[in-house]
Design a protein around this nucleic acid. Sequence first.
DNA 1: ATATTGACAATTGCATGCAATTTCATACCG
DNA 2: CGGTATGAAATTGCATGCAATTGTCAATAT
Lengths: 232, 232
Amino acid sequence: MNNLSTALPPVGRRPARPRRVIHEQLLEQLRDLIVEGELAGGARVPERLLCERFAVSRTPLREALKALAAEGLIELLPNRGARVVRLTPEAVAETLKVIGALEALAGQLACERLTADELGEIRACHFQMLAHHARRDLMAYFKANQAIHQAIVAASGNAVLKQTYDNLSGRIRRARYAANLDQARWDEAVAEHETMLRALQARDGERLAGIMRLHLDNKSYALSAQAAGDSP
Amino acid sequence: MNNLSTALPPVGRRPARPRRVIHEQLLEQLRDLIVEGELAGGARVPERLLCERFAVSRTPLREALKALAAEGLIELLPNRGARVVRLTPEAVAETLKVIGALEALAGQLACERLTADELGEIRACHFQMLAHHARRDLMAYFKANQAIHQAIVAASGNAVLKQTYDNLSGRIRRARYAANLDQARWDEAVAEHETMLRALQARDGERLAGIMRLHLDNKSYALSAQAAGDSP
DNA sequence: ATATTGACAATTGCATGCAATTTCATACCG
DNA sequence: CGGTATGAAATTGCATGCAATTGTCAATAT
């Protein structure tokens, strides 16, 4: 049907990431579809339709689906297709608990290994986040916020920790995507970030770990309170 | 070539888990191959060979491979096949750090939610483990030990935690598989388990969390010390 | 009117075939 | 003799086709 994929590369050679492997591209695109909510929780994942949409055959699509299932984003029902895992408030709370433990560990490790450059980058993100908070730019705030947490995890120097964190973080990102913060909680979160940065600068791992756990617990509480008001 | 798969089911109906989906069976079998060391770390994963061995075509095998890659057991090199992820001492140490944090959280949660039945089961496993330790039956000890840790994680009541724990645990199981404990470390580990059980019975979550972190840190240290003597 | 059965349509699971890339060996050149 | 080009064989990636299962709906029976 289509072998025009070979029509793309001859333009310019990119030795770094050719990314010509279709099932990997599909993996990312499908992830986006789920995170952005186009494939909502509980929705079926129709192979045929997605094949037509992305103009690929079922083989690479099915391979991407298996990977998504292993990541926990979808579930495979034998002979009955795939469904996007429904993000219940309980599942989100459970995930945030685990993420809290991971971030606590990350904070502790980061305090031991943090370089000046890494700290500087985190400080930069922090103040950028403060700016977005001052302007009430929620989306930009989210991005800066996420960047800080990811930077701390990365600064832990533990690749397994980072991978696990990214996976769990990705699972609930779609919930956070649609989450509108309460103004009071927003201010509180920013205050918590202030104490986080202080603990990090003081290299106080124990304290930072405690703060991050608390920070995540509070986020979980705020989310569940919001969920209670959503669809009763 | 082969459509004898349809010759198996008509005997008896098992409504629970027919498990007739080949790519899932393959997933388990390939996991076993890796854990048991037949596919050692760094080894290539030849599609054709495995297809012949399991008498299936490449399609379901490749699907299983994608899932294994998402689980972190193998890595996919575009156009160059798959390799079993090499378990360096550093990677094991990193994984144990994360597992330690997860078990600490599990212990804390378990202390809050533990039922009498669950505690009883853990106690039973504990004493069984003591028996195996007394008889110096390393393999049986490992199994009882693993059962205790899994039971504590399960008692946390956090499905995400359990899934994450199982994944990471599975990645390094093959390392533990070949690990021969030092006698002194073995005795020490058993002593740590005594304190774990006491903390669990006292519902002292903070204390249990600390013990489990320490327990894993010690295991990590023992493993790295052994690895240093392995292949210089 | 509801429940059961039957057939048909749609979807899933797997095997196979072909194009493209990599790999290995051999020959060639410096 | 070391390094590089060149070809074929092997391997990977993807598309397609077919068997099998599931879902749907209408006809019949209760």
